[in-house]
Computed example of a mutant assay.
Amino acid sequence: MTQLPARAGVGFKAEHAQDIFGNDPAVGWFEIHPENYMVAGGPRLAMLEKLCAHYPVSMHGVGLSLGGGETLSENHLADLKRLVDRFDPAMVSEHIAWSSHEGLYMADLLPTPMTKTSLDHLVQAIETVQDYIGRRILIENPTSYMPLPQNSIPELDFITEAARRSGCGLLIDVNNVYISAHNLGFDAGAFIAAVPGDLVGEIHLAGHERDANPDDDVLIDTHSRPVADPVWALFDQLISRIGPRPTLIEWDNDVPGWDVLAAEAALADRYLDHGAKPLLEAAS
């Protein structure tokens, strides 16, 4: 199995295929959502085969419903394992969220209550996935828009305990931290300062927007804009402390031309190079 390099990657979009194949752009890796490739055959799988032949690829799931407290879908697990076995991705990750209930799939990432019961269910779900596909996964911190009244465990404690108990790693989405801190009123810098570096296997960066209602001071995780300056600052804070990690530029809506996306990845690479310097200086 190949490893994701501690460089910037981008989400693979079919509209960029012509810019990617044959041109070998200087990005470190690509991410795909496995749910888009759970098909029997055809051009999607052929395109993924070609991508995996040239770049390390990460599979970032959006549909397992890890945080739903219900038995995971056997069909979804089987489809995921089939992809993992065939394409041998460098990383597999999922969201801490729920998206299905009693067989009804809602095509959304809904918030998981942060309670002891939910934590126990999440750990069991992570272990089920890891046992089924035969490898360690990463779990991503959520985006929060309002506090859930039943929450009894702080978010960072919740995701860290889930990772420690299940043996998985963390995917830290810095944009999610910034949005949640703004919406819920906590200190994003303090959160980033407390993230356990030994668990971090990947980082995500993305753009966000303010809610259209002028009466609401709410940020929305839209993945539709360049990374905001405060998010870059938090990213720099994180990697200056824990060192470079594979870092994804997420841009899933209002997708720009390849040159714009590649420029964001190049900027992330410059931050990663800068973040490596304090560690090199400390070791010399």
Rank of each mutant, 00 (worst) to 15 (best):
T115W: 03
N141G: 13
T128K: 00
V84W: 13
D173S: 09
S166T: 02
G167Q: 06
M106E: 04
A90K: 04
F158E: 10
I137K: 00
T112F: 07
H121W: 11
I137M: 04
L122G: 11
M114E: 09
V84T: 10
L184D: 15
M114N: 03
S144E: 11
G185E: 09
I139C: 04
N183I: 06
E155F: 00
I133W: 10
T128S: 01
S166P: 06
M106P: 12
H76P: 00
N183Q: 07
I159H: 02
H121V: 00
I179F: 15
H182I: 13
G69Y: 06
R135E: 10
Q130E: 14
H121P: 01
L171I: 07
E102Y: 13
H101S: 14
L148F: 07
I133D: 12
A97K: 03
N176Q: 06
P147D: 04
S73T: 04
Y105R: 04
P142L: 06
T143Y: 10
A190K: 12
H76L: 01
G68S: 11
W98N: 12
P89I: 00
G69N: 05
S100A: 15
A181Y: 12
M114S: 00
K116D: 08
E74N: 12
R136L: 04
L138H: 14
N141H: 12
N141M: 08
V123I: 15
I172E: 12
A97G: 13
R165K: 06
P142K: 06
H95D: 09
P154E: 15
H121M: 05
A188T: 09
P154I: 11
A181T: 08
N176W: 02
F186S: 15
Y145M: 06
S73D: 15
L170C: 07
V174P: 07
Q130F: 01
S100F: 14
A107L: 10
V84C: 12
R86N: 05
R82Y: 03
L138K: 10
F87C: 01
A162P: 13
L138G: 13
N151S: 03
K81I: 01
G169S: 14
T128C: 06
V123Q: 00
E155N: 02
Q124L: 01
V174H: 06
S152K: 02
G103A: 07
L110E: 06
A107W: 10
M91H: 14
G103C: 04
A162Y: 08
D157S: 11
L184A: 10
M114I: 01
P142T: 08
I139V: 13
L119H: 00
G69C: 03
R164D: 11
R86S: 05
T117E: 15
N183E: 00
H101N: 09
S152D: 14
H95P: 15
I159S: 02
E155T: 05
S152G: 06
S144T: 11
G103N: 03
D108T: 09
L80S: 15
P113K: 11
P142A: 08
M146D: 03
N151M: 02
R135Y: 01
L148C: 01
G68V: 09
P149H: 11
R135S: 08
H95G: 13
P111R: 03
F158V: 10
V92W: 05
D173M: 09
A162H: 09
R135L: 04
A78F: 07
W98C: 11
D79F: 13
N75W: 13
A90V: 05
M106Q: 09
R86M: 00
L77K: 12
R135N: 07
G167V: 01
